[in-house]
């Protein structure tokens, strides 16, 4: 059984009188621990796919089974719980809360999950250490560099030890060197078993993934696996 199973997924947006088929008949299986890059032209449905995988959006038709469970029929609260416990998001624009320190930003998912302050402290300290942010814990986002911000965001995405990481152009706002650093960080996390799905416009980054998906007009155009080295 694959970790992610998408069957006949349709996602249609109503724009005035016209319909936009953001996803059409998407059929996809992703196993636990895979490293997948999603590429394709702008407007081809990459972000829509990722939002759907992350339960931020619901398909108009089709089924999504996550770890064997049909999650399309779950209530909003149950979906929130799945997001909290199984899914980590990394965004192009980091999405840090500006008034909170790095530490507090990283602790947010623990806060939402009702973890005790004592446990929170230990786990956040560990995360700060792991991501090379030990001296930056009490800095606010505007006191951090772009790379540091994304590292805080990744620390936040992984603090609940999710089963999969969904990254939508995680290096889009970073320079090449910092982007490379962040990519390596994500790959290291994948190396420890987390499923990694990255949407990217950068062919170099896309090619580093073992499995590459190309999208075109809301359909999966190609899905190629590089033979394991």
């Amino acid at each position: 059984m694959a970790q992610i199973e998408l069957d006949n997924i349709q996602r249609i947006f109503q724009l005035g009188d016209s319909e936009v088929h953001a996803l059409q008949d998407v059929q996809l299986r992703i196993d636990a621990g895979e490293y997948v890059s999603v590429m394709g032209p702008s407007g081809s449905g990459k972000s829509t796919l990722l939002n759907l995988l992350g339960l931020l959006d619901r398909p108009n038709d089709g089924h999504y089974r996550l770890e064997g469970r049909d999650v399309t029929t779950l209530s909003a609260d149950e979906q929130a719980r799945v997001r909290r416990e199984r899914i980590g998001f990394v965004f192009q624009s980091f999405h840090l809360v500006p008034r909170l320190t790095a530490e507090e930003n990283i602790a947010l998912p623990l806060l939402l999950a009702g973890i005790s302050p004592h446990d929170r402290k230990a786990r956040v300290a560990q995360a700060l250490d792991d991501f090379g942010l030990a001296k930056r814990g009490d800095h606010r986002p505007d006191q951090l560099s772009g790379g540091q911000r994304q590292r805080v965001a990744i620390a936040r995405a992984t603090i609940m030890q999710p089963a999969m990481l969904l990254a939508d152009e995680p290096t889009g706002n970073l320079d090449r060197a910092t982007g490379e650093e962040v990519t390596q960080l994500l790959e290291a996390l994948n190396g420890r078993g987390v499923t990694l799905i990255v949407v990217t416009h950068d062919p170099h980054m896309g090619e580093r993934a073992q499995r590459q998906i190309r999208m075109e007009d809301g359909r999966i155009d190609s899905d190629s696996k590089r033979p394991a080295p």
Binding site: G54, L56, A76, D77, A80, R81, V82, R83, R84, E85, F89, H95, V97, L108, P109, L112, A113, R156, M160
Partner: peptide, 16 residues
């Protein structure tokens, strides 16, 4: 608004 979106992505329910 974007903070609310983030909280939802991090698993906050509507009631929270």
């Amino acid at each position: 608004t974007s903070e609310i979106g983030l909280l939802k992505a991090l698993g906050a329910t509507g009631s929270i």
